[in-house]
């Protein structure tokens, strides 16, 4: 019962923090994008536009909730809830410090990958139930993309799992605390694996340059075409939470998680996560969208062979030099 209370209280705390961070993240992204394009971004609501996200959410929640007449009503309503639930659920096993973790599972890595894989079902449910050609096209692209990029994602995650010899996220951080961060010391294969994970994460959370399921210039708004008001907010939020949790998982797997000198562990974890989060938006506002076939070619011809090579290299490393040369 104690574990249950612990999980519930920390879970609530982590969810609240994530949602606040997402609201601030949206504000930051708009400011950041503005500066990159020689404009100011939001300035009117609150000091330096800080309350812009609050105003946006209030506006969106006040909009009419439209369900198309020929939509599959049950699925149409279920899809955004499922998307939000899955993206938040992945955060349950992420250790933000040695004590701040909702549920420290011994299969934390599998939990994260499995929930990430399930978001496909939410995408599909949204696209199919909308009964809209654009939404369905978006959903088909989304599924093809997620299924393909799941392969390099799992391969990149396998590298720290093999090197540390555990599937528990806090176990992987503990190993890195004892030896070295995977991205720093065994540069091969750690650093390329981080790059691979980052790319696959961009594709799984539908971020530019891989935002093909949405592709607003060709598919209206892809799977979210028919969604309005609160349901759209859930999708939007789920996408940001997905990116944020993905950044946190990358910090845990490759950048040593809460490990770091001087400052408390939680600060390090937050700093690493936010750095990766910002990198996602840096990429987003710098690059153009890939074409669908280019995306698939990149995944199967380049990233997947690279991932297999990295896993082999990591296995050899774990076999012949466990703990590294240190």
């Amino acid at each position: 019962m104690n574990a249950l209370a612990h999980g519930a209280s920390y879970g609530a705390l982590i969810i609240l923090t994530l949602l606040t961070t997402v609201a601030m993240g949206v504000w930051f992204e708009r400011k950041f994008a503005g500066r990159m394009q020689s404009r100011l971004g939001p300035t009117m609501v609150g000091p330096v536009g800080l309350l812009q996200s609050v105003a946006d959410v209030v506006k969106l929640l006040n909009k009419e909730d439209i369900i198309p007449r020929d939509a599959d009503r049950g699925l149409f309503t279920l899809a955004p809830v499922l998307a939000a639930l899955l993206s938040l659920g992945a955060a349950a096993v992420v250790p933000f410090s040695s004590t701040v973790v909702a549920a420290d599972l011994d299969i934390g890595v599998i939990w994260v990958v499995a929930l990430g894989g399930l978001t496909v079902i939410a995408t599909f449910a949204a696209g199919w139930s909308s009964n809209n050609k654009f939404a369905l096209l978006g959903a088909m692209r989304g599924i093809a993309q997620s299924v393909s990029y799941g392969v390099p994602l799992v391969l990149s995650v396998l590298v720290p799992v093999i090197l540390a010899g555990t599937m528990s996220l806090s176990g992987i951080v503990a190993w890195q605390t004892r030896h070295h961060w995977f991205a720093l010391w065994p540069v091969i294969p750690g650093l390329p694996a981080l790059g691979l994970f980052f790319l696959a994460m961009l594709a799984e959370s539908n971020r530019i340059p891989f935002d093909i399921p949405e592709a607003e210039s060709e598919l209206v708004a892809g799977v979210t075409t028919e969604y309005t008001g609160a349901k759209f907010v859930l999708f939007y939020m789920a996408e940001y939470v997905h990116t944020l949790v993905g950044s946190a998982v990358a910090s845990v797997l490759f950048l040593g998680g809460w490990d770091g000198p001087i400052a408390p562990g939680l600060h390090w974890m937050v700093a690493k996560t936010l750095a990766l989060f910002v990198a996602v938006y840096w990429v987003r506002w710098s690059l153009l969208r890939y074409r669908s076939d280019q995306l698939m070619a990149l995944c199967w011809r380049r990233l997947t062979p690279l991932g297999v090579g990295l896993v082999l290299l990591a296995s050899a490393w774990a076999l012949f030099a466990p703990g590294g040369p240190a």
């Binding site: 299969i107 599998i110 939990w111 990958v113 499995a114 929930l115 894989g117 399930l118 496909v120 079902i121 799941g150």
Partner: peptide, 9 residues
């Protein structure tokens, strides 16, 4: 975990 990953996912 594998059941969720392989079957459901």
């Amino acid at each position: 975990g594998v059941q969720v990953l392989v079957y459901v996912g």
